[in-house]
Design a protein around this nucleic acid. Structure first.
Lengths: 166, 166
DNA sequence: GCTGAAATCGCCTAACG
DNA sequence: CGTTAGGCGATTTCAGC
């Protein structure tokens, strides 16, 4: 599974599947301008090479009863690698934490969390997150409303750069 | 398209499609324990009712040359609704900004950004974001590494709550 | 190597019970 | 919701560039 360079058709496939991950292979093939068999082979190759990590339905948290979304900025008291990894592992074990990113600067981690209601989140915050070993500070901000939620990467920016360097 | 309540099969469908959005309908039907036609009808209904907002391939930004991911915390000088909306619209027009969420507290917005390299991001930051009308302050943090990136909502938490309230 | 064409197999998706 | 059934898509095979 070598990460050989992508050609324009591969990039178009990725852009299309990022936009609509459930598109049929023949429709995808039609859009990228090749026939179905090579298109399917390319998709499999892209999956195996790791360009495509998976396919996910994008569900509406609020409709499903997750009314609360929160960003939590976490500072640790020790940044030793073992302690960082321990905290990351803890985040992976918490279902309410959907994303966890390690950052530079004063904040060590940013967490995106969801919860059915505020009291559920508060009890997670005080009982689990703030109480976890090595956690020095937690600042939380409720999401008032979402303004943009685009998946993955901007392929138009990518194409623009590639044509500039050509 | 009424948002009638979901039964356990609907929730299982959502959980499965969140996990693997490209699963075939017959495989999905098998997993949720019904035959294919009613399964497909349920999926269509869930899509039309807005429970499923779309399907997206999850692509790897780094492999595609987007080496830099940044969270930007933005404060505005005016929080009048028209000014908030204007800033949101601006974010939607910037391809490097993948997510924009309006928050409570001192920070008004949090933005998740990607860029091919640091200099591209810096030029966006100084030339576009900080320079935008009404932007009072921008604090940025580079993502050192991602520790968790789970899609959507935790259906196990949902089921647990539902069984508790039963 | 790559693609495309043909053929098979399996899935999707009506219509009906 | 299940079953049937026809049409279409997916996937292998094979030939050609």
């Amino acid at each position: 599974m070598p990460s050989t360079k992508l050609d324009p058709i591969d990039r178009k496939i990725l852009a299309e599947l990022q936009e609509d991950g459930r598109m049929t292979n023949v429709e995808l093939a039609r859009r990228v301008g090749i026939s179905a068999p090579p298109c399917l082979r390319r998709v499999r190759t892209l999956e195996e090479a790791g360009y495509i990590r998976g396919y996910h339905a994008d569900v509406d948290p609020r409709l499903l009863g997750f009314e609360v979304q929160v960003f939590a900025m976490v500072g640790l008291s020790s940044q030793a690698e073992a302690d960082l990894v321990a905290f990351e592992e803890l985040c992976r074990s918490w279902p309410l934490v959907r994303e966890c990113h390690m950052l530079n600067g004063e904040i060590d981690f940013i967490l995106k969390c969801v919860a059915p209601d505020l009291s559920t989140f508060q009890s997670f915050l005080t009982g689990q997150l703030t109480a976890a070993p090595n956690v020095a500070s937690v600042r939380t901000s409720l999401v008032i409303r979402g303004a943009k939620d685009a998946p993955g990467v901007p392929f138009d920016v990518m194409e623009e750069r590639l044509s500039r360097s050509a």
